[in-house]
């Protein structure tokens, strides 16, 4: 079984994400990290591969330093990587990202393509569904449980009321939510082994396409002024009454 796991390098969440005032795209120069929600995707891909004597290929699209996301996946145990890197893809919107990823994944014989549920910078949660649409593959997204038996795949898709059981046959697209597993930490052995694992670098020209144009653009942006400091009181036995007073003055009750 051949499994792709799509991982994204995102700006370090701790340091805060910023937009570049010139081209109004996300600043990707500084230290990045593997999108934390993609760690669950890597873990799930590895588990499925372990149970089905499969192989895992970590796939990313992003600037040069995005290869670090692939490296992290390799340290966790993925077998090889593919990195689509091209200056012309800078500032890609989700529509363009999904087009490029679909092209990159197509024709490589993957039985499963596993995604995280969301990138912590874009926060759109749309790329997996869009890749499924483009490739004409079953969409098994928002899974908090995945069962693979031969070519049958069954997931629990998280819904507002609980979950839906959804089933399909491979090849299929999966996205997983963070409740699904506990991602492993790379072991020392894993970190050493990752250095020797192959990562294929691909350009847009290699895919035989033109860089998909961005279909939406940021016209302007501004920082939201920090919330005005509120009133903080210490409970002296009347804290509940005081909140009720506040709610009354705000006409909330």
């Amino acid at each position: 079984m051949k499994i792709a796991v799509c991982v994204k390098q995102v700006p370090d969440t701790g340091a805060g994400i910023t937009l570049d005032p010139n081209d109004k795209t996300v600043n990707r120069e500084g230290e990045g990290e593997l999108n934390s929600l993609d760690e669950y995707a890597v873990e799930e891909a590895l588990k499925i591969a372990e149970a089905n004597s499969g192989e895992v290929v970590a796939v990313t699209m992003g600037p040069d330093q995005a290869v670090d996301a692939v490296r992290k996946a390799l340290q966790m145990g993925a077998d090889s990587g593919i990195h689509l890197s091209d200056e012309s893809l800078k500032g890609s919107c989700a529509v363009a990202t999904s087009a490029a990823l679909a092209k990159l994944l197509e024709g490589r014989g993957f039985d499963l393509i596993v995604f995280g549920s969301e990138s912590t910078d874009a926060r759109m949660s749309v790329v997996p569904a869009m890749v499924a649409e483009r490739l004409g593959l079953p969409q098994l997204t928002y899974a908090n449980n995945v069962e693979v038996a031969g070519s049958d795949v069954k997931i629990h898709r998280v819904t507002d009321y609980g979950y839906d059981e959804v089933s399909a046959s491979t090849p299929a697209v999966i996205s997983v939510v963070e409740k699904i597993n506990e991602p492993r930490y790379p072991s020392f052995k894993g970190i050493m082994a990752a250095k020797k694992k192959p990562v294929e670098t691909v350009t847009v020209a290699d895919l035989g396409i033109e860089a998909p144009a961005a279909t939406s653009t940021v016209e302007s942006f501004e920082d939201v002024p920090p919330r005005a400091a509120g009133t903080i009181v210490t409970d002296e036995g009347d804290g509940g009454v005081k909140i009720a007073d506040y709610l009354s003055t705000q006409k909330l009750i």
């Binding site: 509120g230 009133t231 509940g240 009454v241």
Partner: peptide, 16 residues
């Protein structure tokens, strides 16, 4: 917080 109470929620919330 627009309005905050430093206190034990098991005291404050039932009173509220």
């Amino acid at each position: 917080a627009d309005y905050g109470v430093v206190g034990d929620l098991f005291e404050v919330v039932p009173q509220l």
